[in-house]
Design a protein around this nucleic acid. Structure first.
Lengths: 163, 163
DNA sequence: TTTCAATCATTGCATTTGCAAATAATATTG
DNA sequence: CAATATTATTTGCAAATGCAATGATTGAAA
């Protein structure tokens, strides 16, 4: 068991493992609802109010073309509606139907918060908070690095958070 | 910019964001090589020596059926070979070809270590180490929770690491 | 107003995905 | 040895993915 390790502890790989596991757990749970994790994210995000497709993409982290089609499916399922934004006819406003809202509210207790509780089992509040901040910092680092299209040999790393 | 936030700070979501960004960065870089991130993982993992498909799946976090097909493609690209394990004819041993090894070695400098450096930009060594350990703990938590098929209302969270 | 650039969303297309079933070989048990 | 359970890998199939290109609308500049 401790044999196949070695090199398994890089941060990106560990995070990949965690995200993959969470996805599999959520997918398993959401399958009876006819949804996968992305659909679940969309559903619960919309509980907070109407959003444009663009906002939804940013808020859920789903690729926008993927999202567009996902919205089509969820719309066909009767979970949400799409209508043109009167103020800007390029945008499409997505909102939950009563059915969608009902579904979301019914299953709210097993949403991400609970997965977060699983993830953070055994963590102190301070540890959890430090972790959360570190994750946010890493996102900033990535956004800074993303501008360069290529990470380079590592020279640009420290600058991102160092200021 | 600080407008569309709200609820963006759950641990699973933040990690999803990070993993997605890393994937996009690596995919962009790896595309000229005819690979995506999973292929890159396989390639560099094999640099450490031959592996069975099963081991490779565990080590790279790639779904096994996906991996099987990916190996077929990479084999067709001349990057690796598959042969039956003489000691256990159920297993298939995957190893790099000279071409594959050459490719891996050429591009080693921009592999995950560098992305890790990007991610950890501005982190102290202690912070990085704490983060790494937290990630490992979270994987353990997930594995413990995975046995139950469903996360429940949150009652099982603390038990996982608390013992 | 006309023209050109930027933004938002959708779709074409080939590729890839994941689950579940199938296939094959080995371990275990009696 | 025979029968059964377990492990390793591959494939059938329907569905989903992402990039790039398109259509439609708005904003800016002259």
């Amino acid at each position: 068991m401790t044999d196949a390790r070695a090199e398994d502890r890089s941060i990106p790989f560990l995070m990949h493992q965690i995200v993959g596991r969470v996805e599999r757990l959520v997918n398993k749970w959401a399958r009876p609802l006819g949804l996968k994790i992305e659909g679940v994210r969309v559903l619960f995000r919309l509980l907070g109010g109407e959003r444009s497709v663009n906002e939804l993409a940013r808020l859920t982290g789903v690729e926008i073309s993927t999202l567009s089609r996902l919205l089509g499916r969820m719309s066909a399922m009767g979970l949400l509606t799409r209508r043109r934004d009167p103020a800007d006819a390029r945008s499409v406003i997505v909102s939950l139907t009563d059915t969608g809202r009902k579904l979301a509210l019914e299953h709210q207790p097993v949403y991400f918060r609970d997965y977060e509780e699983v993830l953070l089992g055994g963590f102190t509040g301070a540890e959890a908070q430090a972790l959360r901040q570190h994750l946010i910092d890493m996102i900033d680092n990535l956004d800074a690095a993303g501008d360069e299209t290529k990470p380079g040999a590592g020279e640009t790393a420290a600058r991102a958070a160092g200021g």
